[in-house]
Design a protein around this nucleic acid. Sequence first.
DNA 1: ATGCAGGCGCGCA
DNA 2: TGCGCGCCTGCA
Length: 277
Amino acid sequence: MIKIKNDFDLVSSLLSGQCFRFIKEENESYTCILDDRVVNIIVNNDYYVISSSSEENLEEKVKYYFDYCTNYDKYVSLLSNKDDYMKKVAKECKGYKIFNQDKFETYISYIISQNNNVKRISNSINELSKMCGKKVFFNNKEYYLFPTYQELSKLNIDDFRKCGVGFRDKYIINALEKIKDNPSFLEEIEKLNTEDALKELMSVKGIGLKVASCILIFGYHRFDVFPIDTWVIQNISENYKDIKPNQKSISLFAKEKYGDLSGLAIQYMYHYQRNIK
DNA sequence: ATGCAGGCGCGCA
DNA sequence: TGCGCGCCTGCA
């Protein structure tokens, strides 16, 4: 068991939709499956009290996952200087963080997320994990880690269907084949600039701009890519009257206005529109 | 109960 | 290049 400082908004960051593997317990604590272990987090005013199925490097692990290494205050103040509306949004989003999730897990999870709702996405991911992920016992309950590439590759198209991924079954297969052809595919993305990284991810049939952007921001912690969805379009059109409410103009606007932090800026707008306002 | 939920690929102009 | 359509499926 460890304690870490409660200096961000765990609950709203979890609920914002960036990760799919957490459970709210009856005692208001949260149980999350983080890569190689299960953790339970009790929220106190000053501390998060964290217990885990594995104590090994627990503090390091948790601090990395919940992004204690990034100085969000600096980003909030940089963004606040850009315009008045962003100043208001950033202030409200101060506690919102983008986690450091596993690349492979993000890659597969966001393929499943397309034209889908959070509940069913979580369901499918849990089923996949149950079918081939490692079983872990924690507090007398069983949990299943997200499968590794090797584990997931053992499944066939019917198995994916059984997990409820629907028509995305073939997209997952394509994504796995990409790694089969080039085992360091996901690592190589890291070295590319954002434009090339998007292009490379989109070379997988089943990954379009939206999914590729989600993978880069949530799996690679790239703060200069922005998944644009209806929430963001709504927010921009309500607050920036001279920007046309479509993908292209919003993308151009965000790049020019917020530069390297455009992804974080758009994420703040998304979060504000969907969860705070 | 029909359209939607954090899209995508395809076929057609 | 741009647009409309179908697609799994559970849920409001």
